[in-house]
């Protein structure tokens, strides 16, 4: 019985609507027990977030002693505003701006560059293709820890570390994992389609842009969403490569806030900043959760 489940949500809903569920069957009892257990687990999963939201709504004196606020206040957001302004020019707004600046252009350019490369690797026949692809796969195995320090030095030499450019420019050159992922989708498109387009007189770029790209748009969208989440949350890269405190991204800003103060008085502000830094991710996750979860399951099938 367990195996029928992952078919179609609509179909499941339809069968459930049809069957009269008045009988107390062993399955019903098992369902109830499992639902209760899963619900308890779900509460544990959500509890830290709920605690966080309440913590930003109470005075610092009761932050560790109560769960629900006895006294409701938005003081945490005021102190967060002030603390951020003290830490960097423009405060939390600038932090958001920096995060957007280091995320959106990266996502867009990286996807475009990677899609072109994926198309070339999947659909074109050119000299040295296989060896280049093999080398690219090989570079995926290099741990970041090995190259990150020379990278930091290199970016410094290139004058990228004074601003946000050190976490933007290098990513403009594409992402190997995205190439790998998209290549699979280009493989799935029959050659007859590209050849038909070519016979109609479309050049390589036209064929790619107007025929193939629309077909892999769902995969590109998935990669863009994952890339957004990854870049928005990125910590170690920006920690190493951003030298100017006016260019801190939100995770760095939040980390700086929590590290600089540490006194209980400042904690609600730190949590308020953390909460705000999560908002874009929560929105993206809520909007695209099906795509995000689908991509994981897809990788599982491939792996």
């Amino acid at each position: 019985m367990e195996n029928e489940i992952l078919e179609n949500e609509a179909a499941v809903a339809a069968t459930e609507a049809k069957k009269p569920s008045f009988h107390v069957t062993p399955k019903l009892i098992a369902d109830i027990v499992i639902t209760i257990l899963l619900a308890l687990g779900a509460v544990i999963m959500l509890l830290p977030f709920i605690w966080m939201v309440f913590a930003t709504l109470k005075p610092h004196t009761e932050i560790y002693t109560t769960f629900f606020p006895h006294e409701w206040t938005l003081q945490s957001f005021v102190s967060m505003w002030n603390d951020c302004n003290r830490l960097m020019e423009g405060g939390i707004i600038r932090g958001f701006g920096n995060s957007i600046l280091t995320t959106i252009p990266v996502v867009i350019v990286q996807i475009i560059v990677s899609a072109f490369a994926a198309y070339a690797f999947a659909k074109l026949r050119f000299f040295g293709k296989d060896i280049v692809f093999l080398i690219m796969l090989g570079t995926m195995m290099i741990p970041f820890a090995v190259i990150m320090l020379p990278q930091a030095w290199l970016y410094g030499e290139m004058n990228l570390t004074n601003g946000p450019l050190a976490v933007i420019i290098p990513k403009f050159f594409g992402s190997i994992s995205t190439v790998f992922f998209l290549r699979q989708f280009f493989y799935g498109i029959p050659d007859s389609i590209t050849e038909a387009a070519r016979l109609d007189g479309a050049g390589y770029t036209r064929t790619f842009l107007s025929v193939l790209l629309p077909l892999v748009m769902p995969a590109i969208a998935t990669q863009a969403i994952l890339s957004f989440i990854g870049n928005w949350n990125d910590f170690l890269g920006p920690l190493l490569f951003i030298g100017d405190r006016n260019w801190l991204t939100l995770p760095l800003l939040v980390n700086r806030l929590s590290g600089s103060g540490g006194s209980t008085r400042e904690i609600p502000g730190v949590l308020a900043a953390s909460l705000l830094s999560l908002v874009p991710i929560i929105i993206v996750f809520a909007a695209f959760q099906k795509k995000i979860i689908g991509s994981i399951v897809f990788s599982a099938v491939k792996g």
Binding site: F49, N233, L250, P251, L252, V254, N255, S274, L275, S277
Partner: peptide
């Protein structure tokens, strides 16, 4: 975000 949840 790892930073946000770690701080919590």
């Amino acid at each position: 975000s790892i930073v946000a949840v770690s701080i919590v």
